[in-house]
Amino acid sequence: MKNLMLAAAALALTAGMGLAQTVRIATEGAYPPYNLVNDQGEVDGFEVELGNELCKRAQLECTWVKNDWDSIIPNLNSSNYDAIMAGMSITEERRQSVAFSQNYIPPTASAYAAPAADVDVTQGVVAAQTSTIQAQYVAESGAELLEFATPDEAVGAVRNGEAEAVFADKDFLVPVVEESGGAIVWVTGKDDIPLGEGIGMALRKSDTELREKFDAAISSMKEDGSLNEMIKKWFGDEAVLF
């Protein structure tokens, strides 16, 4: 009886070791349709669906973690989680601190939106989310940059007149502009500015094994066209495809 219990205990202990480690993926949860917290309070969006599919293909067990945008890279490097999928554009600057998988969204356009179509976006105050390629672009454009923690607050700044225009990913702004009933419109000639090298998954530089697994999974989704379908589902038919 005693031996039996010991054997059962040993089995229970070793069984846990055989399982694959859980991969924790961080997202912001405030950047629809890339990632969002749905009305059930769960993370949802293009990246969550894509991430789950990638994990399935790479045979990994994954869970999702919500983390504020401005601390999302430091917390990756201090190992609070293992990967980031948060609409993060691949840039040279970010490559200094993290490694990127291949892109899972091709380089997409960013756009200026403002209450009037004829706003001069190289002057005056322009709102953008902090630590984004858009914020950097605004800072270099000559306009005064007003930074916000979430993209929604950047849009809010335009609504209440604090900023003259907002600069963000076009995919994020499309529903905002369409549903504003004319209160926010595209800035003429400034609604299609290509920035960055596309959006990819960020991982720790030392984590090459995990990066290769996800790279292979992204490749397989690009090859069989399922990635394009997923992009169409979340971003509409006009979205840029691979």
Binding site: G29, A30, P32, N38, D39
Partner: peptide
């Protein structure tokens, strides 16, 4: 409060302004 209060577009089941 910040998450729920933020403006919601048609992606969500209950769209509402800020």
């Amino acid at each position: 409060a910040r998450e729920l209060g933020a403006a919601k577009t048609r992606v969500y089941a209950y769209p509402h302004p800020d």
